[in-house]
Amino acid sequence: MKRLEIEWLARINYGDAWELQKKLVKEIDREERADSLLLLEHTPTYTIGTDRHPEHLLYGKEELERRGISVYEIDRGGDITYHGPGQLVGYPMLYLEAAGLDLHKYLRNLEDVIIKLLAEFDIQGGRKPEYTGVWVGDRKIAAIGVKFNKARSRRGFVTSHGFAFNVKQNVEQDGFQGIIPCGIQEFGVTSLETLTGKELRVEDISRLIVPHFAEVFGYEVPIEGATLCSSTK
């Protein structure tokens, strides 16, 4: 089976994480590093994907500064979303062979990872056919937006960006009220704490998601991977 490097970066500025992704994508392309999964939290941030609908950002410059929320226009697919403390963000950087590549299948696999994690808490996660992401009823618990970087030294792609899974209840109020998340007005968001009624730690949930990711994507994860060491930075 393929090997996967897993690292827990704790809380990190969005710009720093984005630059780190770019660096690792190049290393994976050159076969200098194994496929990797970064797990982390972000400081408060809005990211606007390539769909580019700035009108879905409801706060002006002064309100953003008052709340300490950064804004980045980035190169993943999708519209605007929020990242912040209490949310588990995962950035898989995986090499995908060009032959037989199904980009939609990759997105569905990311959704499957979250759905399997929710099942551990007896929560039925699902999809909405017209939207990417994971839902519990009519509330979104995980947003997904990715980029497929064309490899330069091999015939294939290296993925970047990934998923944002709402763990803590505070995430629902801390940032989502300042945007129209993913441009979807008719549905709201939820969190794992809201659904379970339990107080949870993001780092603990990051450990739980690893075996589901390995199972769905066919990776062998060494026992020491469970410690989620932070040696990349």
Rank of each mutant, 00 (worst) to 15 (best):
Y59M: 11
L57G: 04
T45W: 08
H56G: 09
Y46C: 07
D29G: 05
H56T: 02
E32S: 12
R33E: 08
E62P: 00
T47R: 04
E32A: 14
R52M: 11
R30F: 12
H53S: 11
K61W: 08
T47C: 11
L39K: 00
I28F: 07
E62R: 08
D51I: 10
T43R: 07
R52C: 12
T43E: 13
H53M: 11
S36T: 15
Y59G: 04
L38C: 07
R33T: 01
H56R: 07
E55W: 01
T45E: 11
P54G: 09
L57R: 03
R33H: 13
E62M: 03
H56E: 11
E27T: 00
D29S: 03
H53F: 03
D35M: 10
P54F: 03
T45R: 05
D51S: 14
L40C: 10
L38D: 06
E32G: 04
L38Y: 01
P44T: 03
L40G: 07
T43Y: 11
R30Q: 14
E55T: 09
P54E: 06
E55F: 00
T43P: 06
V25I: 09
E41I: 01
E32Y: 06
I28P: 08
H56D: 15
S36D: 04
E41D: 09
T47M: 05
G49K: 09
E31W: 04
S36K: 03
P44N: 04
H56N: 15
R30N: 13
V25R: 01
T45Y: 03
I48S: 04
Y59L: 15
L40A: 12
S36A: 14
G49H: 07
I28K: 06
E41S: 01
S36G: 00
H53K: 15
K61V: 10
K26Q: 10
R33W: 12
T50K: 15
H56V: 06
E27F: 07
L57I: 14
A34F: 15
L37S: 01
L57Q: 09
T43L: 13
T43S: 12
R30P: 00
E27L: 14
K61D: 15
E55H: 11
I48N: 07
I28G: 00
L40P: 08
T43V: 00
K61Q: 12
T47K: 08
K26F: 05
E31D: 13
E27H: 08
A34G: 06
Y46T: 01
L57W: 00
L40Q: 07
D35S: 06
R30I: 00
T47P: 12
I28T: 11
D29W: 07
E55D: 14
E55S: 11
L57A: 06
T50D: 02
E31I: 12
E62V: 05
E55N: 13
H56F: 07
H42G: 09
G60M: 05
K26M: 01
T45L: 03
K26I: 08
E55Y: 00
D51K: 15
I28H: 08
L37H: 01
E31F: 12
R52H: 11
R52A: 10
K61F: 04
L58T: 04
E62T: 04
D51M: 14
D51Y: 13
G60Y: 06
R30T: 01
D29Y: 10
H53C: 03
I28N: 08
I48T: 02
T45A: 09
H53T: 10
G49Y: 06
E55G: 14
R30L: 13
A34H: 15
H53G: 05
D35L: 06
E27I: 00
D35Q: 02
P44K: 07
L58A: 01
